[in-house]
């Protein structure tokens, strides 16, 4: 065959070219499903180490403080201003229908059911999730994770399991604070700026909120805390290629945790509040 004939024979057929987008879609689906499977196995592996000794309490306490204590200012500020904004916006809308008295109900339900867990989750994902991915990622690319393995220490047990438990337990605590401050923000705006009676506002708040609202809000927070820790650990643990790789895994941890928080928020809301 002459050269042009060879080139012609090597050229993909029309059918192959037409199938290329389908093939790309198939690869994407397989990669996504494979990634989800690897993440699930990683989570199960991490959780299984919580049930088997030894447990590294110092690592747990360090991660717990990082989650609960050092994130407190940013979560507190977010919550208080969110409560204030909801009160203002609700007033604007409800005054058209003479329903201003519902502001306390709207503030407490929005904060306790949704904004408390979601905003605290997003703030903590940006702060702690990123730090977790960066720390474990740096340990990975500088051989510290391998060094753990050579020192009779399972890295999943030492690095991942304590952080997963810390996320699971610390975010609900933060959300309790966020709930209180969010409601307080609404209270301040309603009383100081909009002229509500403090006693009536407080009475409305307590009469409308149900224990289940708080419990489900805190359960959401637990789930979000676990997801933040999981994405931080997973992305950090699989970092490759030096500083650039650690940077990429940090970004992935924050983006993935934020998206998962919003997805799981919908799923949990559908499960508990849609009836």
């Amino acid at each position: 065959m002459t050269d042009p004939e060879v080139a012609e024979a090597d050229r993909p057929t029309l059918a192959v070219r037409a199938a290329a987008p389908v093939s790309a879609l198939g690869r994407l689906v397989l990669d996504t499903v494979g990634g989800a499977g690897r993440l699930a196995l990683f989570a199960l592996n991490g959780l299984s180490h919580l049930l088997r000794p030894p447990f590294y309490w110092r690592n747990f306490l360090s991660a717990f403080f990082e989650f609960a204590f050092y994130s407190l200012p940013v979560v507190a500020l977010t919550a208080i201003f969110s409560g204030m904004v909801i009160a203002l916006q609700s007033y604007t809308g409800f005054s058209r229908f003479n329903a201003q008295s519902a502001i306390a109900d709207i503030v407490v339900l929005s904060v306790v059911r949704e904004l408390g867990p979601v905003l605290a989750g997003l703030m903590v994902a940006g702060r702690v999730g990123a730090a977790m991915a960066a720390e474990i990622g740096t340990m990975r690319v500088t051989d510290q994770v391998d060094a753990l393995g050579t020192l009779s220490t399972n890295p999943m047990k030492y690095l991942v399991a304590p952080r997963l438990l810390a996320g699971l337990l610390a975010l609900p605590l933060l959300v309790v604070v966020a709930d209180i401050l969010g409601v307080m923000g609404g209270f301040i705006v309603s009383v100081v700026k909009l002229g509500f009676s403090p006693a009536a506002y407080v009475a409305n708040t307590f009469s409308f909120v149900q224990p289940m609202d708080v419990i489900v809000g805190l359960a959401k927070a637990g789930a979000f805390g676990f997801l933040i820790a999981l994405m931080g650990c997973y992305n950090g643990y699989h970092s490759r290629g030096g500083a650039q790789g650690v940077g990429a895994s940090t970004t992935s941890a924050v983006v993935a945790a934020s998206i998962l928080i919003l997805c799981f928020d919908y799923v949990l809301t559908e499960m508990f509040f849609s009836r």
Binding site: E135, D143, Q144, D146, A147
Partner: peptide, 9 residues
């Protein structure tokens, strides 16, 4: 290890 791989923390 090549670079020591000491635990920073």
């Amino acid at each position: 290890f090549q670079n020591g791989a000491l635990f920073d923390s």
